[in-house]
Design a binder for these strands. Structure first.
Length: 541
RNA sequence: UCCCCGAUAGCUCAAUGGUAGAGCACCCGGCUGUUAACCGGGUUGUUGCAGGUUCGAGUCCUGCUCGGGGAGCCA
């Protein structure tokens, strides 16, 4: 259906040559090889417009939106690097272009040529006074209009939703985040090791993995590269893997995907403190990099950057046991009571606001456009109201769960949120009970009930972004743990070899890219942080 | 697997149990500085599916399907 980008630009070039032939003086056409250079206009992109003020340029892109007022049209052109308002006035010289643009549907592809002007009235601060326009490919009835759409509709049109400003911005930030991650490790002597996607039954919770028929044998899509990375770590000392990972958990929440990207470093001769120090430095680095490169983009997304600026070493730290005490404390009960009161107050305010708007809408003498605007505002308020009412219903339950938290169980989602809410920086929670963690985590020397692990909780309710641990390097203890978990040792013989031949203390962690990006961008849902989200009950497009 | 909410025009949403509507999109017309432009006119329906209650169901009841987000589990 959609042509490839390369084919698109070849066609665009060919069409432009045709256009150029028609428009420009034959006197300049001395060299037939030079067709594209005969134009006085420089070929450029919207992002580069600042360097071409006062010059004639040509842009190629897609029609983002168009407004007209009699003899003047405003064409918002999107070219992949930004948006530019192109102004087209009807005159003898531009009549053909004017008429061609008049019935152009949203997302039609086109090329325009004109004079660049600095103008605050135009999107992005620059405008193009159009002298020529060529339609490359017409589009009719583009499904995604400038008006609001529902999530279901947008997700079904993800292949087109990409083109809208918000999604464009988010995925550009994702690209920077991915680059920051790779650069961090590459610049510090880590060797990138690609771990396999097909994995035999790899122990911890095989029921949550996707099974694949592998020449008649059942294997699984990898949920971590860690065990393989441990092998690589004994060869290269500092390694990392970065790739997709798969979880078949039947979770339908704003934090879950069935296919997501995870980066996992692993370092030899390292203990838990080294691991946490690495995670801390790493997270500070990538957060500050995104902040440095995307201030305007984050502002466009409505992200308050102050909480991100606060992401500086050292982060907060507490043990699991301390967290358990905090959860049961009066401080947490009070905090939740206050949160509930605030939520209820906000709910009440929203309700009266909604009533007032409804009264105005259905009242006498309301202008049509005003009524429409009110309906839109009311829809937004209702959405916020629904979220808050759900929160208000949940808080008493969260309070109950926290107050009755018993040492030995894993922290629930609500417990993590509570711990994170108590701080304005990321929090490391360390030393979880061994019984609720994976067999490979290093047993703590002082307290055999707990392991040397940590979770890093992002602030502002974004929850667990990193899980990591020191690995059990003692062959005997590891075998004991595997017996405890009733794991068949046969598939792990190669893994046990790593302890048989020159075992050393080592540690690592995994960071989820989509959760991190949702946090950085201040998004409600991870589905917008990945190009094509794979979720429970959703594999298309 | 469990709990809560929802499904009305292509899209976003209205409609005391009583004639299915608006805005957008699209078509026609107007407007030389618009910012989700605006103004006038026009086209647009198996109210998710199957039953039930009722003189009468978009509205009430039951079941199912699909979607939303929460629990468990997780990054």
């Amino acid at each position: 259906m959609l042509r490839s980008g390369a084919a698109e630009s070849d066609r665009a070039t060919a069409l432009w040559r045709l256009a150029a032939k028609r428009v420009h003086s034959p006197l300049l056409a001395r060299n037939p090889q030079d067709v594209t250079d005969r134009s006085m206009a420089t070929r450029t992109t919207i992002a580069e417009l600042a360097q071409h003020v006062g010059q004639a340029v040509r842009l190629s892109g897609w029609l983002y939106n168009r407004r007209s007022s009699g003899k003047i049209q405003f064409i918002i052109l999107r070219d992949g690097t930004g948006l530019c308002q192109c102004v087209l006035e009807r005159a003898d010289a531009t009549a053909a272009a004017f008429d061609a643009a008049e019935h152009l549907g949203q997302e039609s592809s086109l090329m325009v040529e004109g004079q660049v002007r600095r103008d605050e009235r135009g999107t992005g601060g620059y405008e193009l006074t159009v002298t020529h326009l060529e339609v490359v490919g017409r589009a009719e009835n583009y499904p995604i209009t400038p008006k609001p759409h529902g999530v279901e509709f947008l997700m079904e049109h993800r292949h087109l939703w990409f083109r809208s400003q918000r999604q464009w911005t988010i995925l550009r930030i994702r690209a920077t985040l991915v680059d920051a991650i790779r650069r961090y490790f590459n610049d510090r002597g880590f060797v990138c090791i690609d771990t396999p996607i097909f994995a035999p039954s790899a122990g911890e919770g095989a029921q949550t993995l996707f099974s694949v028929d592998y020449f008649g044998e059942t294997v699984y899509l990898a949920q971590t590269g860690q065990l393989y990375l441990e092998a690589a770590c004994m060869s290269h000392r500092k390694v990392y893997c970065f790739g997709p990972t798969f979880r078949a958990e039947k979770s339908k929440t704003r934090r879950h995907l069935t296919e997501f990207w995870m980066v996992e470093p692993e370092i030899a001769y390292a203990d838990l403190d080294d691991d946490i120090a690495l995670a801390e430095d790493f997270v500070e680095n990538i957060v500050q990099r995104v902040l440095r490169d995307h201030r305007a983009d984050l502002a466009f997304l409505g992200r308050d950057v102050a909480p991100l600026e606060a992401v500086r070493k050292p982060f907060e730290r507490m043990t699991y046991s301390q967290a358990a005490e905090v959860l049961r404390s009066k401080r947490v009960a009070d905090m939740l009571d206050e949160q509930l009161a605030q939520t209820q107050a906000r709910v009440a305010a929203l309700k009266s606001d909604l009533e007032a708007k409804e009264a105005e809408r259905s009242g006498p003498g309301v202008k049509k456009w005003r009524a429409e605007k009110l309906v839109q505002e009311m829809a937004e308020l209702r959405e916020e109201l629904a979220d808050l009412e759900e929160l208000a219903r949940n808080i008493p339950n969260h309070k109950h769960l926290a107050a009755n938290f018993e040492w030995g169980g894993d922290l629930g989602g609500s417990d993590e949120t509570i711990i994170a809410r108590l701080h304005d920086k990321p929090v490391f929670v360390t030393h979880y009970p061994r019984t609720c963690k994976a067999f490979y985590m290093k047993r703590n020397e002082q307290d055999h009930r707990v392991v040397n692990n940590f979770d890093m909780l992002a602030p502002e309710g974004y929850g667990e972004v990193i899980g990591g641990s020191q690995r059990e390097d003692d062959l005997g203890v590891l075998e004991e743990r595997m017996r405890e978990e009733k794991l068949d040792p046969a598939p792990y013989e190669w893994y046990l070899d790593l302890r048989r031949y020159g075992t050393v203390p080592h540690a690592g962690f995994g960071l989820g890219v989509e959760r991190t990006l949702a946090w950085l961008c201040g998004l409600k849902h991870v589905r917008e942080t990945i190009p094509f989200a794979r979720m429970m009950g959703k594999v298309e497009p």
